[in-house]
Amino acid sequence: MLQLVADGLVVGSVIALGAVGLTLTYSILRFANFGQGEFMTWGAYLAVSALALVLAVTGAGVMEPLGPFSFGWQLIPAMALAAVLTAAIALAVDWALFRRLRRQGNAITLVIASFGAALALRNLVQFLYGTLPEYYTREIQIAIRLVPRDVLGGLRITPDQMLVIGLSLLLVVALHVMLARTTLGRAMRATAMNPALARVAGVDVDGVVRATWVIGAMLAAVAGVMAGVVGQVRPMLGFDLLLPLFAAAILGGIGSVWGAVLGGYIVGLAESFSVPLFGAEYRAATAFLVLIGILLLRPTGIFGERA
């Protein structure tokens, strides 16, 4: 029981970060970006390249584990570099594609274009990196027993998994503080509410749009690296998480940051609990059953507001 909760929270943390980026771009750019999953994949792969670069520059050759974790300190700057490069890709895609389509003001065109962009990004990553899985480290981690087996089945968790949960929460709290306390955050909330009023109030809406892409893509990149730390880096990493991302964002109430976080955890827990109950092959289906159930009770999602 406790083990299922822990497993669900780990998966949920990755989904939550990706879903926060998705919900941000939806509320400010006003379209569902199906490319968000690919930003996760790109972030994970760019971190593989950045890690090789950091190891080469520092002359370390191989990565010595940092404390209890499976990876060394070199993964931290590699992840930061990957996040910056993923943000650059997001800005480039926006400049080349979405910016032009936004002017015509057709949300359906934007959604279909994001499908196309996702497909192109996924194929490009396969072309550049191949289809075989990559790993940041080959170190094997031993899970730590936190709760003995006779208490609700016990709980074992690796330090990497604890880091994933902790880092995800830290980033979401940082994002919340940024949105609540800074001028950029207020400008983002204002633009999400009323872009025309934001313009006449002095907000550079194009700048806010760029900032949204940067933040959403960086969160996706970190989520992708975390998924790679506790699993593998593979071309379908983001695509496989895309539907759970949407489920989390919609379940929490599209446009709500905390809704996306809660939605991410609910989807993660639903997937985790479905394994012993219905079998691993029904993980995604169970998450969507939960989504349907919650939307039937509350059509706007948990934190969603009525239009």
Binding site: T183, R186, A187, R189, A190, A192, M193, N194, A196, L197, A198, V200, A201, G202, V203
Partner: peptide, 25 residues
């Protein structure tokens, strides 16, 4: 410029509406 309708950011507090406007100039 003060538009006719929807002329405040309804999701922001009164203070945040003013703080945002002040910070932008």
């Amino acid at each position: 410029f003060v538009p006719q309708t929807e002329n405040v950011f309804a999701n922001l507090s009164v203070l945040d509406n003013l703080k945002l406007a002040a910070a932008l100039v």
